[in-house]
Amino acid sequence: MNAATLSSPVQSPKFKKDHFGRALMIGAVIEALMIGGLIYSHLSQPVTVKPKPKIMAIHMIKPAPPKPKPLPPPPKPVVHPKPIPKPLPKPIPRPVPHPVAHHPLPPKPLLAKTPAPRAPVYTPPVTPLAPPSPPAPSPAARQSAVDLYVSEVRLLIQANLRIPEELRLMRLSGMTVVSFELTPQGRVLWAKISRSSGIGAVDRTAEKAVRSIIYPAFSRKMPKTDTLFVVDVHIKT
């Protein structure tokens, strides 16, 4: 064997067949890997769902015919106010002429002769007579009228007694003699205690009762001058 023969050995047909089958398998594996990679990359991407388009239905509606406009109302008849009749002017009454009566002139009086003036005669004035004064009452009648007035005064004082509450609580009683002077009209000029009861509150109550009363006027038979009265006042509680 020479050197050329050793460097390039002759490949047998069995070797070629193994080499081709091996290359075919490698190609199939590479193709399978590529297909798997494509499938993996496709599965890893998010799936986007396209929305379905909305279908809008349009219905054509026939417009309603326009309503006829209402006819305007007939114009109202114009009523003219009745003219107010003007009042007729009142006729001015004409003065009725009165016939003028012509009286005849009276005859002129005859001038009489005037007598000569006389001296005035003095007549003294007549004084009217005063009415006769009533007869003065007798002393007995006057005393009787005074006694009757004193009894009325004593009843008035006893009826108008105002007993203070302090006397009622202390049950104080007594009799006081009070002297006082009255005008003919019944007005009290003064009053004082003539005889005390011995209790100051009783004396003050009696004197106050005498001063606070409006007495009647004197009767006709009583004297028309200021008169002194002495009355006993009894106070009981």
Score class of each variant (00 low, 15 high):
Ala191Thr: 01
Asp147Val: 05
Pro89Gln: 00
Leu148Phe: 07
Asp18Met: 09
Ala140Phe: 06
Gly198Glu: 00
Glu181Gly: 04
Val231Pro: 07
Ile30Ser: 09
Ala57Asp: 15
Pro124Val: 04
Lys52Gly: 07
Arg142Leu: 00
Ala23Pro: 00
Arg211Cys: 05
Val188Gly: 02
His103Leu: 15
His102Ala: 02
Ser219Arg: 15
His42Gly: 15
Ala23Gly: 05
Lys208Ser: 08
Ala141Lys: 11
Arg94Glu: 01
Pro81Asn: 10
Leu110Lys: 05
Thr123Cys: 02
Ala119Trp: 13
Arg94Gly: 03
Gln158Cys: 10
Tyr40Trp: 15
Leu71Asn: 02
Met222Ile: 03
Ser212Val: 11
Ile157Leu: 14
Pro125Val: 12
Pro83Val: 01
Ala116Ser: 14
Pro128His: 13
Thr127Pro: 03
Arg118Thr: 15
Pro93Ser: 11
Pro95Tyr: 00
Ser8Gln: 06
Ser194Ile: 13
Glu181Val: 02
Ile55Lys: 11
Arg22Gly: 05
Ala116Asn: 15
Ala130Pro: 09
Val100Ser: 07
Val177Phe: 02
Asp203Ile: 01
Asp203Pro: 00
Glu31Ile: 14
Glu31Trp: 12
Ala64Leu: 14
Ala217Ser: 01
Pro95Ile: 02
Gly198Trp: 01
Leu111Lys: 06
Lys113Glu: 05
Pro124Thr: 03
Tyr149Asp: 10
Thr225Met: 10
Phe218His: 00
Pro132Tyr: 11
Pro63Thr: 02
Ile193Ser: 05
Lys192Glu: 02
Pro134Met: 06
Val10Pro: 14
Met56Asn: 15
Lys221Asn: 07
Pro85Asp: 09
Ala145Cys: 04
Val100Ala: 08
Ser41Glu: 10
Val153Met: 08
Arg171Glu: 14
Gly200Tyr: 02
Lys113Asp: 04
Ile58Lys: 13
Thr225Asn: 11
Asn2Val: 07
Pro134Tyr: 07
Thr227Phe: 03
Arg195Cys: 04
Arg22Met: 03
Leu105Pro: 01
